[in-house]
Every structure is written in structure tokens, then in C-alpha cells.
Nucleic acid binder design. Structure first.
Lengths: 91, 91
DNA sequence: ATAGTATTTAGAAATATTTCTAAATACTTA
DNA sequence: TAAGTATTTAGAAATATTTCTAAATACTAT
């Protein structure tokens, strides 16, 4: 909800890397954490930011929470960026 | 130079609005400032951030500095976003 | 129920961002 | 050269972000 939230979420390198990991498919918080030199608490914080920006969603299964990419919001910001690129005197 | 810089620059509403204003053509720092309820110093700060992110460039003319959109970097981040969207198991 | 694993929440410290005022710089023109 | 306009820089205050440790929650399986 809102470009600020989306762009802010994308501005952190760890969060961008999380999205890239999720490109290949769903991962648990623990799996994600294993790619970083950060505590689980910090990973959880970044996942929360990504979730709030609607860039990922979660699904619980057994003892795990799996995270997946949500590309809907990405399409919206692509549109915003396109409008800047294409835009001329008459927009 | 670096997605972090670009996304961080785009995460501020004032800076996004500046880019939208520049869509229509070059504007001086003062012209830009007249659209906001902020001091000139603050506008100058935001312009510096956008400049550092290569989202705008300036050209001096008479007593004014004119700012213009630079869409090159926008294309790069569109590519990064596209790669997330299209990406499947084999990327 | 108990113990174990996975993840989040709370609280605190360090750092970064945003904004202001006041002063400095740069350029123009009388 | 002096005065005026446009913009930036410096320094400080308020707020936000990122990270940690320690504790809490949630679920599983014995």
C-alpha cells in the first residue's frame, strides 16, 4: 500500500536478496536465514518489512512458515516507473 | 550506482513528486521548491539525493540551475524487477 | 504434559534520514 | 564593484532504521 513502503522495502540489500532467493520458490524463515550472517530475529524483521510491503506472503505448514514472492506490487511500481520514462509534455 | 541508492532515493514522496514534475521538462531548483511546503535547503538536499542516484542531472544557465530527469537508471531497475517477476526455477 | 525446534516480539544501542535555521557560494546586472 | 537573486553547505534537532540479545509464542513429537 503506497510506493513509499514498497521502495523502502526494496532499498535494503538483504531484503532484495531475500526476494531473489524466493524467485526460485518458497523458503522457510530458517532457510532464508541460512544465507545471511544475521540473527534469526533480524531476518524476521526484514521479512516483516517485506510482508508489510506486500512483496511476500507466508503460509504455515507443520512447524515452519514458508515465504513466497508476491509479484503483484512489483507490477504496480513498474507502471509508475514506466509513466516517468514515457511521459512527455502532455501527461 | 547500486540499487540501494536508487530505491532509497525513490522511497521518499517528495523525491518521487520531484521526478514527476520533471517529467514535463526541466525546472530550476526554485521552480521545484515552489511546489512544496519546505525550505529551499531541504529541496536542495532532496535534489542532491536524486543526483547521487543518477535519477536527475543538472545544467547551469544564467543565475539558475536546471534539473532534468535521467531515465537510464530507471531502465536498470525495471530490468531487475522484471527478473524477479519472470524468474522461475532455472534462473 | 514435556522437551525440542522454528519463528517472532520486546527493548535497547548504533547509525541513518529528514528537516530546519543561519551562513556561505555563485552568478547577474546596475 | 556592490547589491540582489538562486542555490548550496554546515550544523543541529527530531525521527526512523537496522541490528542485537533475551524472552516469548507456536507448533511437533515423544
Amino acid at each position: 500500500m503506497g510506493y513509499a513502503e514498497t521502495f523502502k522495502a526494496l532499498s535494503d540489500p538483504a531484503r532484495r536478496q531475500i526476494l531473489e532467493l524466493l524467485k526460485k520458490g518458497p523458503l522457510s524463515a530458517g532457510d532464508i536465514g541460512s544465507h545471511f550472517d544475521m540473527t534469526g530475529a533480524t531476518i524476521s524483521y526484514h521479512l516483516k518489512i517485506l510482508k508489510q510491503a506486500d512483496l511476500i506472503f507466508e503460509s504455515k505448514e507443520k512447524n515452519f512458515i514458508y515465504y513466497q514472492l508476491n509479484t503483484t506490487v512489483l507490477e504496480e511500481i513498474m507502471l509508475w516507473i514506466s509513466s516517468l520514462q514515457g511521459g512527455g509534455k502532455d501527461d
